[in-house]
């Protein structure tokens, strides 16, 4: 009887320990993923479009191939640099295959240190309305929000002052 019990316990311990090992072994990979540019579908992206906090969040939908998007990028960077209390998130609609070869070098060159995620969800017709029913789908598109207020912009910002002015008008006021 005691022998049986010992046998079972040994077996269990080995199984449990190996589980522990498998999980801890994964950790380094998960860590690197966090500093990387994650590729999301819309369901994975959607939580980033809302906040519980009073801080200002700016989410900018853009792509490297979109000329007006690239032109307004420095204004978002300037805003992020000058307003550390706010959060700026860039949602790239570039191609996942270009992340390492084009997107990362591009962001480095532009000095973008804010969070960047890549949205790869083919059927845009189903998710564009969930972002904003008035959005046509043209880029760039920006949402400025906190837990109380929300404003959508289907246009590019002309300057840092333009962006600051809109944040003040729609969120902080």
């Amino acid at each position: 009887m005691q022998r049986d019990l010992k046998f079972i316990l040994t077996g269990l311990s080995i199984i449990l320990i190996s589980f522990g090992f498998t999980y801890s072994y994964d950790e380094p990979f998960i860590q690197t993923e966090k500093t990387d540019i994650p590729v999301y579908n819309f369901d994975e992206l959607e939580p980033l479009l809302y906040t519980d906090s009073e801080k200002t969040v700016i989410v900018n939908f853009w792509a490297m191939w979109c000329i007006p998007c690239v032109k307004e990028l420095p204004h978002f960077k300037a805003y992020a640099d000058q307003h550390p209390e706010a959060e700026v998130i860039f949602v790239s609609l570039d191609f996942p295959k270009d992340i390492e070869t084009k997107l990362k070098p591009f962001l480095k060159e532009k000095g973008i240190t804010s969070k960047v995620v890549l949205l790869d969800d083919a059927d845009a017709n189903t998710w564009i309305d969930k972002v904003d029913p008035n959005w046509s789908g043209a880029l760039p598109f920006t949402i400025i929000f906190n837990n109380q207020k929300r404003a959508h912009y289907e246009r590019s910002f002309e300057s840092l002052a333009d962006l600051e002015n809109e944040v003040n008008k729609s969120i902080l006021k």
Binding site: N134, A151, H152
Partner: peptide
């Protein structure tokens, strides 16, 4: 909860 402001 939100009161969307639409610029365009």
């Amino acid at each position: 909860k939100h009161s969307p402001i639409q610029s365009k």
